[in-house]
Design a protein around this nucleic acid. Structure first.
Length: 133
DNA sequence: CTTATGACGCGCA
DNA sequence: TTGCGCGCCATAA
C-alpha cells in the first residue's frame, strides 16, 4: 500500500480503507463506517478530521445519519463536500439533505469483509453452520 | 508524562 | 417534536 496512511494507527487506516470502498454516486454515514470497523461513530469523524489533503480517500461520501453534511468546527459544512457529491450524482433535497434510501451505501461486498475479517457475514443463505466457508 | 480538541449517534425526558 | 448527556480514539502541544 503506501501513500500517507502508513503514519496512522491501525484504527484510522481501517476507517480509511472502508471509506475507500464507498463507490461514487452513493453516500455512507459515520455510524455505518463505524459499525464495519467496530468503533464508535465519533471516531470516524475524528479520523476523517485528521485526514490530510492529498489522500485518496473519498471522505466527502461520508455524511451523518440525518442525511446531512456534518458541520465542522468552523461552524459550517465545507461547501466543497456538497459540490463534490453533486458532481458524483448525489441529489440534495431543498432542505439540503440526501435521501439515504436512494443514495445510501449498501456496505462493502461480502468478499471484501471476508478478506478483511470484518463484521460477521450477513448470512442470508441457510447452510453454512458456523461461519465462513 | 498530561491536557485539549475534534466530520457522530443514540437513548431518554 | 426538541434538548441533554454519554461513549470513545488518536494526534498535537
Amino acid at each position: 500500500m503506501s501513500s500517507a496512511t502508513e503514519s496512522f494507527s491501525v484504527r484510522h487506516q481501517a476507517i480509511y480503507e472502508v471509506v475507500k470502498t464507498i463507490p461514487a454516486g452513493v453516500v455512507a454515514t459515520y455510524g455505518q463506517v463505524a459499525a464495519i470497523v467496530g468503533c464508535g461513530p465519533r471516531l470516524v469523524g475524528y479520523a476523517l478530521a485528521s485526514l490530510p489533503a492529498g489522500m485518496d480517500v473519498p471522505w466527502q461520501r461520508v455524511i451523518n445519519s440525518q442525511g446531512k453534511i456534518s458541520i465542522r468546527s468552523d461552524g459550517a459544512a465545507d461547501p466543497r463536500q456538497r459540490q463534490a457529491l453533486i458532481r458524483e450524482g448525489i441529489v440534495f433535497s431543498l432542505k439540503g439533505t440526501v435521501d439515504l434510501k436512494r443514495f445510501g451505501w449498501d456496505g462493502p461486498d461480502w468478499d471484501w469483509l471476508y478478506e478483511r475479517g470484518l463484521e460477521p457475514p450477513p448470512r442470508r443463505d441457510s447452510a453454512a453452520s458456523g461461519r465462513f466457508p
